[in-house]
Computed example of a mutant assay.
Amino acid sequence: MNRRLVMPLALVLPVLVLVVVAFNVQAPYVALGPGPVFDTLGEIDGTPVVDVEGIEADETEGSLYMTTVGVTDNLTLAQAVTAWVSGRYGVAPREQVYPPDRSKEEVRAVDQAQFAQSERSAELAALHYLDLPVSLRIAEVGEDAPASGILETDDLIVAVGGDPVETAGQVQRAVGAVAPGESVRVTVLRGDREETFDVPVGERPGDPGRGFLGIATEERPDVPFTVTFNLADIGGPSAGLMFSLAVVDKLSPGAINGGLSVAGTGTIDSDGIVGPIGGIRHKITAAAEDGATVFLVPTDNCAEAVSAAPDDVQLVRVETLEGAVESLEAVAAGREAPSCS
Rank of each mutant, 00 (worst) to 15 (best):
P146N: 09
E143N: 08
S118C: 03
E203L: 06
W84C: 09
S148V: 01
Q114S: 11
L127P: 09
R204A: 13
G181S: 07
P133V: 01
T82P: 03
R193M: 01
G87I: 09
A159Y: 09
R102E: 12
P205Q: 01
Q170I: 11
D198P: 07
F115L: 06
W84A: 15
R190Q: 02
S148Q: 06
V97I: 15
E123V: 15
Y89F: 15
R204V: 04
L189D: 04
G206L: 07
G181W: 02
E119H: 05
G90Q: 13
G169H: 04
V110S: 10
T167K: 01
Q170F: 05
I150E: 07
G90R: 13
L136F: 03
L132H: 04
E105N: 09
G202P: 10
H128V: 11
D163H: 09
L156F: 02
P100F: 09
V186A: 01
P205S: 05
V110G: 04
L132I: 05
T153I: 11
T196Y: 06
G169Y: 02
D155I: 01
R210G: 09
P164N: 06
Y89N: 15
D154M: 02
I157T: 04
A168K: 04
P133E: 03
T187V: 07
L130C: 09
V107R: 12
R120F: 03
R108P: 07
L136N: 07
E152Q: 03
G161T: 02
D198F: 02
V160H: 03
D131R: 12
P164Y: 02
S86Q: 10
S183Y: 08
T187Q: 04
A83G: 13
I150G: 12
S135N: 07
G161D: 01
V201Y: 08
Y129F: 15
D198S: 14
R210I: 08
I138A: 01
R185E: 12
Q79S: 08
D131M: 07
Y98I: 11
I157Q: 00
V107Q: 07
L132M: 12
Y89Q: 15
S148W: 00
R173W: 10
Y98L: 11
R102N: 13
V81N: 10
E195G: 02
A126H: 09
R102S: 10
V134G: 03
T187L: 01
G87R: 11
L130N: 09
A159T: 10
E203D: 09
R88W: 14
P164H: 02
V186M: 00
A147K: 05
R173G: 08
S183R: 14
S121M: 05
A113W: 06
D144L: 01
V158K: 03
V188W: 00
R88Y: 15
L130F: 09
Q114L: 12
L151Q: 07
A113Q: 11
D163G: 05
P133F: 00
V165W: 00
S103H: 08
A92V: 15
R94V: 13
V81W: 14
Q96V: 15
G191F: 00
G90N: 14
R102F: 11
L136Y: 04
G211D: 06
V201H: 11
D207M: 08
